[in-house]
């Protein structure tokens, strides 16, 4: 696969916000943990849980599901992608971007549409229902990620797909978390 990492930024949606923290590259578990620690440092004691937990969910998605992977240790391939946290006027924005197989786009879009246009109360009911289901095929987690992000953002989440070629599509999730 062509290495597209260095061109990721061009696919990201424009944001009216200050950059707090960005990372582009391999998302090993250690990077996931380090990213949250850096975020805590950048936030200087402010710890909005919804921002942290949404960011964790987004970057673990990259680690587990990116179509571009690197096998650093020779034990198991981990995902490559982009993560960024921004501060807007009224909200924090957590963004993830990674390649997905174009053949999987329709399935991912179906997951996205499940959480669109629902109230937080409806989303919580869906979450509790899904929690009791066995994880969907191909899911390394619980199949709950999008629902959880929709709950934490009060439905303020954008999904974007930018076709790169027949094989891969760049998938961006932008999650907006209200400042208190």
């Amino acid at each position: 696969m062509t290495n597209l990492s260095l061109q990721y930024q061009q696919y990201l949606p424009p944001l009216q916000a200050h950059e707090l923290l960005t990372y582009e590259g391999v998302f090993t578990h250690e990077v996931v943990v380090q990213f949250t620690q850096e975020l805590a440092a950048v936030m200087g004691g402010e710890k909005p849980k919804k921002l942290f937990v949404t960011t964790i969910e987004l970057i673990q998605n990259i680690k587990n599901y990116s179509a571009e992977t690197v096998d650093v240790t020779g034990n198991s391939p981990v995902g490559v992608g982009f993560a960024g946290v921004y501060s807007g006027e009224d909200e924090f924005i957590s963004v993830s971007g990674n390649l997905v197989k174009t053949a999987h786009v329709e399935r991912i879009k179906a997951h996205c549409s499940k959480v669109r246009g629902r109230t937080v109360q409806e989303l919580r009911a869906l979450y509790n229902e899904q929690l009791k289901e066995p994880p969907p095929e191909g899911s390394k987690g619980a199949g709950l990620g999008f629902i959880d992000i929709a709950i934490k953002t009060g439905g303020q989440v954008d999904f974007e797909f930018t076709p790169i070629n027949d094989d891969v599509t760049f998938f961006t999730i932008s999650a907006f978390i209200n400042k208190l």
Partner: peptide, 13 residues
């Protein structure tokens, strides 16, 4: 717990 991810939620269940 302070916060947990969705895989941990499954484990809580």
């Amino acid at each position: 717990l302070n916060y947990f991810n969705t895989s941990s939620a499954k484990c809580m269940l």
